[in-house]
Design a protein around this nucleic acid. Sequence first.
DNA 1: TTTGTGTTTAACCAAATGGTTAAACTTTGT
DNA 2: ACAAAGTTTAACCATTTGGTTAAACACAAA
Lengths: 205, 205
Amino acid sequence: MAKEIKNDTSTEEKILAAAKQVFMEKGIDGARMQDIADKAGINKALLHYYFRSKDKLFEMIFMEAARQFLPKVTSIMSSELPLYEKVEKFVNEYIDTLLQNPTLPIFILNEINRNPKDAIKKIFGNQRPPIDKVEEHIAKLVKKGEIKPVKGYELMINMVSLCIFPFLARPMVQWITKTNDEEFLQLMELRKKSVVRFVIDSIKK
Amino acid sequence: MAKEIKNDTSTEEKILAAAKQVFMEKGIDGARMQDIADKAGINKALLHYYFRSKDKLFEMIFMEAARQFLPKVTSIMSSELPLYEKVEKFVNEYIDTLLQNPTLPIFILNEINRNPKDAIKKIFGNQRPPIDKVEEHIAKLVKKGEIKPVKGYELMINMVSLCIFPFLARPMVQWITKTNDEEFLQLMELRKKSVVRFVIDSIKK
DNA sequence: TTTGTGTTTAACCAAATGGTTAAACTTTGT
DNA sequence: ACAAAGTTTAACCATTTGGTTAAACACAAA
């Protein structure tokens, strides 16, 4: 009866991986439990044996996704690095995360729009990201005359926009730039530098 | 038997308006024909009398939305205006469109991801937007040393990102900026200038 | 008045879908 | 060898949902 080391590595993870794929691709409404079972290589009965309902399963997947969405970025922003380095690290980290999870943004945003309150709570906990810290930091540099006056939250929104949007509109971007899947990822890799430059050029005096 | 002036203004438009609302809010999979009928103040039978199927109805709505998504922006970009004015007009037009259709972006992006080929065809027809024109324009100014070297498509993507993303992530933005619905729209109104400045500051020498 | 179109009502259908159940088989740890 | 948990099979259920049908009604034009 002792609860030995549960060897979860197999079925449960297969289910989660399959569910992630299907939910990300089709959204919660478009996803079919049968598809998830198939993709996991098991049957519906077992699927419900592990996760009682579709909602429960979706919840799990979303929680996992929510954690990734707000990456280590928070610590970067509240760090003591010089602003430009903050920007650079932020953008690099963010785009890296997205390169490893290209479909994360649309998945998250859909849930945010479907169920704003809960989704936001799951992403941010209950504390706002530390933009106050950024705000102060920027205010100082503005006073010193080193950068143009910008609002902290605006800078944040702009950076996030520039990082995430291309992944959201990926098919459009690929069509416009005539790139295939591989080339798109390379493009985003290059984009790191380009965005950093774009942002810094925009605020520096 | 003569086809007099069909007074479409009533039922058909009511349906389209209702369908637009429901589809935008719930997506095609989450939308219920019954809900659309209810919201239009009619019954399911009549709904199917006007639009044979859910898919057909969705198609209509998407076509209408697709046209708005690529606004008069195209003509602006291929115009002979000075670059900075182009940027200004582009951003203003775009954000204005979005202020009048705040849920358009997520709706469009979902369809693009669900059905990239068709969706893109419906949005752009078969011609790419005139970024070549922008490309030339920029190349000239770069050569003259008036602006920093930027790629045309990158400038475009950046501008579009900065305009659209806040609407995509609206609940998040509102939560971070502690704004209610009205204040959010004001914020976006202000954002026009802010984005224009951000972009221009970034490319000017 | 007639006729056709718009509209409602209400019952109905078939398919899809989330979820359940029970019985049998397999695996694994004790 | 035994028991418990994992897994399959397959039938089954209730509900939802897109869509249909037919009969009756309203109304405007011919």
